[in-house]
């Protein structure tokens, strides 16, 4: 046997840590890793910082410059995301060829799933909007404008990536007054993506549902798509496969009614009415002659059966 020795954890804590690294049925929210590349200009640095503010606290920031070019070799990026337990990453860099470069990507099974390189054409940071901001840990509403989002595979994947990056966590319930952030992504005819961030103001409307007003809080950016590396159809499908436990299966014969009660239906087999014991009555009793005839009949039947057997 030649194997690296795979040690068993000796402590309970160690065991728990190792178990947490295994694949889970119910996964936690994805963390985002913020990485700066070889060189990072002012706007891209500020953009990363502002995106960090939006994503707080589900993120980890690496402050040093990393000599990584993800599109050439993603292995060190995979290593860093694995070390920091992040399934999403944002990589900022600047070069003469690609100024103000932001790479969005995600990881599946410790390997790169897909990434998109975006060039920032226009940037206005959080600090440049002098108004009241939102609190942290607010689940945003995501708005995708433009017919192009659904037209090409690249944009469809990018939309999926944006949702994955900004949706925070899937929740079962939400506080109605807590909906106060809107992120909009608009794609124009020339493939420019405009990201805007708004604070939602709930105004009176004279009805139960409030009237919405928006104020821009930043950061606002315009992107162009540069290079992309999309997952193969097969891998993408595999990564989206959900465990059976999570899928909701319809329960048969169980229905709730308007009052909130749950009704179940049970199917019973057909009842044998012939053998049912009804009320005994004297008048229905058999006479001795009738009983005798019945006994004879039974005897003959028995005899015949025996004869058949012997044959």
């Amino acid at each position: 046997m030649s194997l690296l020795r795979i040690r068993k954890p000796t402590t309970h804590k160690g065991k728990k840590i190792l178990l947490a690294r295994e694949p889970q049925i119910h996964e936690p929210a994805k963390n985002t890793l913020f990485i700066e590349g070889r060189k990072c200009s002012g706007p891209i640095k500020q953009a990363l910082k502002d995106l960090y503010h939006i994503k707080k606290p589900l993120c980890k920031v690496l402050t040093r410059n990393n000599d990584i070019s993800p599109f050439e070799d993603a292995s060190s990026l995979e290593f860093l995301t694995r070390k920091n337990d992040c399934a999403l990453f944002m990589f900022g860099s600047t070069s003469k060829k690609r100024p103000d470069n932001l790479i969005l990507g995600r990881i599946f099974e410790h390997e790169l799933l897909d990434m998109v390189e975006l060039g920032i054409k226009y940037f206005r940071g959080l600090g440049e909007f002098k108004n009241e901001k939102i609190g942290t840990c607010v689940k945003p509403t995501l708005i995708f404008n433009g017919p192009k989002w659904n037209q090409t595979e690249e944009l469809r994947r990018l939309r999926n990536l944006f949702i994955d990056t900004f949706h925070r966590d899937t929740v079962e319930a939400i506080r109605l007054q807590g909906i106060e952030h809107a992120l909009s992504f608009t794609v124009t005819e020339d493939n420019t993506i405009m990201m805007r961030s708004y604070k939602i103001l709930l105004k009176k409307s004279g009805q139960r549902t409030p009237r919405i007003e928006l104020t821009e809080i930043g950061p606002s950016m315009d992107f162009t798509i540069r290079r992309t590396k999309l997952a193969s159809e097969d891998l993408f499908k595999q990564s989206r496969k959900q465990p059976r436990e999570v899928k909701v299966t319809k329960k048969k014969n169980v229905e709730p009614d308007e009052l909130g009660n749950v009704h179940g239906r049970i199917h019973v087999g057909k009842q044998n009415i012939e053998s049912l014991q009804t009320r005994k009555m004297k008048g229905l009793k058999k006479t001795p002659e009738e009983r005798k005839a019945e006994r004879l009949k039974r005897k003959v039947a028995l005899k015949q059966a025996k004869l058949k057997e012997s044959l």
Binding site: P23, I25, I107, I163, T170, E172, A173, R208, R240
Partner: peptide, 30 residues
Amino acid sequence: WELPTERVDECIVAKLPAPTTVLPRIRKVP
């Protein structure tokens, strides 16, 4: 606002349905 609501700790909370958009998982299904 049309979703069924509940009252939890003096807050009105709306129950969200399960999302229809399927996002990639972090790891494979165990």
